[in-house]
């Protein structure tokens, strides 16, 4: 073994030193809520396949204050995910050229956010219509 012990600077908490990376870690962190929410839905689907009693048990569990608190946090996280997803989109998709000019980034972001708002309202209207 070499006796050399070079100094290696610690990388602990590197992202906390720069607001840009704090934001990056938060928007990457929304994935934890997406995963957890998918887990909640998967549990519900499995309960549905087990019959009426199991399904009603799952519905009752959702009324638990811990579940409500989780879903409040998940709502914030997913809304933030929506915002950052379309904020980054001008850089994650190929350039769009309209009439020889490159479409500015804010148009793509605004278009995406408008589409998300329409999709959310559409989903609510659809569920409303199917439930009535």
């Amino acid at each position: 073994m070499s006796k050399r012990r070079p100094y290696v600077r610690s990388m602990d908490g590197w992202w906390r030193k720069n607001p840009f990376f704090v934001e990056y870690m938060i928007h990457e962190g929304t994935a934890l809520f997406v995963a957890a929410y998918a887990g909640v839905l998967l549990t519900g689907l499995y309960r549905l396949s087990q019959g009426e009693a199991a399904w009603n048990g799952w519905l009752a569990a959702l009324k638990n204050p811990w579940y409500i608190a989780f879903h409040l946090a998940a709502l914030l996280a997913l809304t933030y995910h929506t915002y950052t997803w379309f904020k980054i989109m001008p850089r994650t998709m190929p350039p769009v050229v309209v009439g020889g000019e490159r479409l500015p980034g804010w148009v793509i972001t605004a278009g995406g956010l408008a589409a998300a708002a329409a999709a959310c309202l559409g989903l609510l209207a659809l569920v409303w219509g199917m439930a009535r």
Partner: peptide, 20 residues
């Protein structure tokens, strides 16, 4: 990412908050 960005917030609101 696209599907969750489009309908994720409303889905969470409906199944996790509005109905319970």
């Amino acid at each position: 990412g696209m599907l969750s960005a489009l309908i994720g917030p409303m889905l969470v609101f409906i199944t996790g908050l509005a109905l319970p």
